[in-house]
Simulated scan of single mutants.
Amino acid sequence: MKNSISPVFMLFGILFTACLLISNILAIKIITIGSLAVPAGVIIFPISYIVNDVIVEIWGYKKARFVIWIGFAMMILSNVMYQLAIEIPAAPFWTNQDSFATILQNSPRIGLASVLAYLSGSFANAFIMSKMKVMSKGKNFSLRAILSTLVGEGLDSMVFISVAFIGIIPAKELLMMVLAQTFIKTAYEIVVLPVTILVVNKVKKVESETAFDSNISYNPFKLNEV
């Protein structure tokens, strides 16, 4: 595998991070899908898992781990900048300070829930996708993509909803919210799976070789192994 970082890999890394940051803003609004109430972030956040699958499939788990940590750093940076912008006094003629703060200011509990959910779900998705690739010798991409998303999105939803709302929302409703979000996000993956497969095949041709992890250890803290 080439050591240099390709422009296509950079593009997917940027797309992954953009989806993450956009979803954090959209998640402030609660929408209904049928009879289910879910954060509006569900309309874009699953795309980050699809991109994660593509990165693992083409460039391997180590590169996916690197992108996940970059996304984490950008999440922290954006939240710091949001808070700084809120604290800076507004111009006398600007009257939207309260609305601005309402949209961009998360409580410490929500912020912690977002970070923990993102890290646990993203790493689980990438690790399972990559491990299954080794076990299947690169076959059964569709099955690997769906199962890794099911576990990753399930873990993400469980961690976020538990940390953010336990003690506030009844346990039964929390469980329903976790199941609903996991179902919707996994269904999203299944619906767009033909597009994902098409993208993987196109990128493989562009990159000329596929990354294949033969020795994967679940240690997300080794940033130098990319």
Rank of each mutant, 00 (worst) to 15 (best):
V115N: 06
W94E: 15
V8R: 14
M176C: 04
I166N: 08
Y188W: 02
N140P: 03
L175E: 04
P39K: 05
C19W: 00
N52P: 10
M135H: 12
I128R: 07
T186P: 06
A145E: 06
K172T: 12
L150V: 03
F221P: 11
F165N: 06
P170A: 06
M75K: 10
L223I: 07
A40P: 00
M176P: 00
Q181M: 05
V151M: 13
N52F: 04
I197E: 04
K133S: 10
N24R: 00
G167Q: 02
F165C: 05
A124C: 14
K2D: 14
A91C: 08
K139T: 08
Q97W: 12
V8D: 11
K139E: 09
M81D: 10
R109W: 10
M158N: 02
V159H: 00
F123K: 07
Q97V: 11
S142H: 04
D53C: 13
Y49T: 01
S114E: 02
F12N: 09
N140H: 15
I184R: 02
I30V: 03
K205V: 11
G121F: 05
I110Y: 06
N106K: 14
I50Y: 01
E87P: 00
V159T: 08
L36G: 00
K205Y: 10
K63Y: 13
S99N: 13
A64G: 12
G152F: 05
G13K: 02
K204R: 15
G41D: 01
A124P: 06
I110W: 03
L175Q: 05
D213N: 13
G13N: 10
S35K: 00
K131C: 07
V206N: 13
A126P: 12
M176H: 07
Y188F: 03
F212T: 02
G71L: 02
T102Y: 10
I68W: 10
I55N: 09
K137T: 09
S99T: 14
G34C: 08
S99R: 13
I128N: 09
E173W: 07
G138P: 11
R65S: 14
P194A: 10
F221R: 00
A85F: 15
M132L: 15
L147E: 10
Y49A: 02
E209I: 08
K131Y: 12
L155Q: 00
S23Y: 06
A91V: 11
S217T: 12
I76F: 08
K172N: 13
M74W: 11
R65V: 11
P7G: 04
W69Y: 14
P92R: 00
K63C: 10
A164L: 04
A18K: 00
V195N: 06
T210Y: 07
V51D: 02
S148T: 09
A37M: 05
A126V: 14
I55K: 10
D213I: 09
Q181D: 01
V67N: 13
S78K: 14
K29Y: 08
P39G: 03
Y61P: 11
Y118D: 06
L147D: 08
D213L: 13
A85N: 11
V54E: 06
N125V: 06
M75A: 13
N224S: 15
L15F: 07
I88G: 08
C19G: 01
F72R: 01
N219G: 01
T186E: 01
